[in-house]
Design a protein around this nucleic acid. Structure first.
Lengths: 233, 233
DNA sequence: TGTGATGAATAAGTCTGACTTTTTAAGAGT
DNA sequence: ACTCTTAAAAAGTCAGACTTATTCATCACA
């Protein structure tokens, strides 16, 4: 599941990364490489590699004679999938989920519009397949099966947009959808309206109707926003 | 300017990172840490730290008995500001600029709409100040001055949206705007229509008119897309 | 009293060499 | 042709010595 575990430095990151993003070491905190190496019972070289990775994520800054300083939250590389995963695993998961859902609501409609123009025949087929899978699992508490096809659906849309930046958000969307199913709302079957919308988006993309695909996807994301009470009254 | 230069491993990254993103080592290529350390004339520890950073960006994968393998392009962390900078500095700058401009066109209108709801009085003041600065530098080949205020304007919008994910795109937008001014189109003064739109967005945000701010910003981004011939006829 | 230079302490940075572990590929034996 | 053993290759890990930049405190001088 986790990217790390790959070597000792990865294990250190699995522990230290979430600790930092959770605010266990608040911004401004100063850590010392040697102390960390001792407390994790690894060599300094391993700890240095871990610190380098955290530094590349802009989570910390390493300065001579000072130590390793935790940077302010607003400087973190919040698009780094690893950082996203760490934060979603922590206490401010709800806030994180809201930020990402707003992001989705901006991106996915545009991506769907582009997908309607660029999708290959194969991608259209995948899309309808996913939509049918969603329909098949929409009743009777088959939440996991539904989630699986939901994630696949949105991933195909993003890939079919033909835009590299959109395509790479597939993992993020997957995390958001999974988080919603597993921890937040959605204990009941999904709303029939939402399921229908997905089927209609698949149709619109297949028909090459960009405007319609965009509008329908916008309705899907509005639903997602409402579920999190994000829309102001 | 560059984040690196911070230590030996940073210098190695400044050289190796762009080489990889430029395709000098195509995906699938296998590098050996020891050889790299020799060719860069640094110790293995330093080279290992550099490789760890590249690994955290998903640019390479390090496996025992095999070496350091360059990953396929579609697995790279393309939202990493460092990766973006490396790619913008390379040969596929135009393609990169298009991807990012499409991304902007999806995000900024929504961000502007949110800004209209959430912007503080201070942010509104900054915004009008930026807009006025753009007007002041819109004629007579004062492109650098115009760019400066343009970047500041969009940064304020993104920050004022109140959404962390939007806010962190300020640097990306800055790179795109700078790239456009310095290397692509825009050798003449900016179009008067574009300047006017920025002023109107500032007004709409101050007035709290979300729908209008969003629509006006959408017109701005449509202009940016047209400049790059992205919109199909 | 304030200010600038000096120097010592500190923690990161760097290098080296020896050793371990995992993984792949070759070769021996059936 | 197939499996098991073995050897080689490259990353991974560790320990220790040394270097360098930065900060802070002290002290001399204006």
């Amino acid at each position: 599941m986790s990217t790390s575990g790959r070597g000792l430095h990865g294990q250190v990151l699995d522990s230290l990364g979430p600790a930092i993003t959770a605010g266990e070491y608040p911004p401004g905190s100063v850590l010392r490489t040697d102390e960390l190496a001792q407390s994790f019972d690894v060599s300094r070289s391993v700890m240095r590699e871990a610190v380098r990775v955290l530094e590349s994520m802009h989570l910390v800054e390493s300065r001579r004679r000072v130590g390793v300083t935790v940077r302010p939250t607003n400087e973190w590389n919040v698009y780094d999938p690893q950082v996203i995963r760490w934060r979603l695993a922590g206490a401010d998961r709800p806030r994180q989920l809201r930020s990402l859902t707003v992001l989705r609501s901006a991106l996915e409609p545009v991506a769907a519009g582009l997908a309607a123009k660029h999708a290959t025949a194969e991608q259209c087929a995948e899309l309808t397949e996913c939509a049918l899978g969603m329909v098949a699992h929409s009743r009777g508490h088959q939440l996991e099966g539904y989630l699986f096809h939901d994630i696949a659906f949105h991933r195909v849309i993003l890939n079919a947009s033909g835009n590299e930046m959109f395509a790479r958000l597939g993992d993020v969307v997957a995390e958001v959808l999974a988080g919603r199913t597993h921890h937040e709302v959605m204990f009941e079957d999904p709303l029939p309206a939402a399921v229908t919308l997905h089927v209609q988006v698949a149709e619109a993309v297949r028909a090459g109707d960009a405007a319609r695909a965009e509008e329908l996807t916008r309705q899907i994301t509005v639903g997602a926003l409402e579920e999190l009470d994000i829309l102001a009254p």
